[in-house]
């Protein structure tokens, strides 16, 4: 029996599902091995139970929580797909802004004033804390990154097919950066989230001349204090350090604490 696989999304750009669709060279081989029952980006079919559910997106509203809990009850394995599902991603930045301020920024002052007096809109204000999936339900595996890494997706699928646990080593981005022979970002006079960030991305951003923004979340052993000291030594203002941390880590405890 081929395992029933489904994809779902919450608040996200669906870019991770696209990243998987982009693995054209292996996608057909994978589809031979699984039974894809739900994939909004590609097909539309409903099933009552799944073996593996890939869930993209972060959790914002009460109805999201209900939907996710329902999903959890219908799947054997739940995989958090991408940064939104693993650690909240960029939208978790709004955790640090008052809901009304956010609303005003998007819809303008008039709209904000109107909805504040209209009780039908009040529930909006309670809906704005952005959470990763594991703040709501148990997550069995994490495919980190914005977007996810096809090689990790493939490793996970193969592991699930063999009934084994996928292994993603808790190594900093620096490990792959060195393996790729990159000049350290610090050598270029820039700062980097690499030393505290989960690797597995093959240091793709640094390989291409950019810096690591930490989209894959902080490592369990991350030495945050040391990283802040490092940023300060590079004359980064505390305000900007905070901003770097909140770019992708706004829903992580560390993003709130810095």
């Amino acid at each position: 029996m081929k395992p029933k696989v489904a994809f779902f999304d919450f608040a996200s750009c669906e870019g991770c599902q696209l990243a998987i669709l982009n693995c054209e060279d292996i996608l057909l081989d994978i589809l031979n091995l699984v039974n894809l029952v739900e994939f909004r980006e590609a097909i539309s079919e409903k099933a009552p139970r799944y073996d593996i559910a890939f869930v993209e997106g972060s959790i914002h509203r009460d109805e999201d929580i209900e939907r996710l809990q329902n999903l959890r009850s219908r799947t054997t394995v739940l995989v958090a797909l991408g940064a939104c599902a693993c650690n909240g991603c960029v939208q978790a930045r709004s955790n640090f802004v008052a809901p009304a301020v956010n609303y005003e920024a998007v819809y303008g002052e008039d709209a904000r004033n109107r909805v504040q007096v209209d009780a039908d809109f009040w529930s909006l204000w309670s809906h704005t804390r952005v959470r990763p999936l594991d703040a709501v339900v148990k997550v069995d595996a994490y495919l980190r990154g914005c977007p996810v890494v096809p090689a990790e997706f493939l490793h996970l699928v193969k592991s699930m097919l063999r009934g084994t646990t996928p292994y993603f080593p808790p190594d900093a981005v620096c490990v792959e950066c060195k393996k790729n022979g990159n000049e350290c970002v610090l050598e270029r006079g820039e700062t980097c989230m690499g030393p505290i960030t989960w690797g597995g991305c093959n240091s793709i951003c640094v390989n291409n001349g950019y810096v690591c923004d930490g989209c894959r979340g902080t490592l369990p052993h991350a030495n945050i204090q040391s990283h802040i000291t490092l940023m300060r030594e590079h004359n980064i203002k505390d305000e900007d350090i905070r901003s770097r941390y909140r770019l992708f880590l706004g829903a992580e405890p560390i993003g709130r604490g810095v």
Binding site: S159, R162, G163, T164, T165, Y167
Partner: peptide, 9 residues
């Protein structure tokens, strides 16, 4: 672990 679980299969 992963490997020993697989060996048990």
């Amino acid at each position: 672990g992963r490997l020993t679980r697989a060996i048990h299969e």
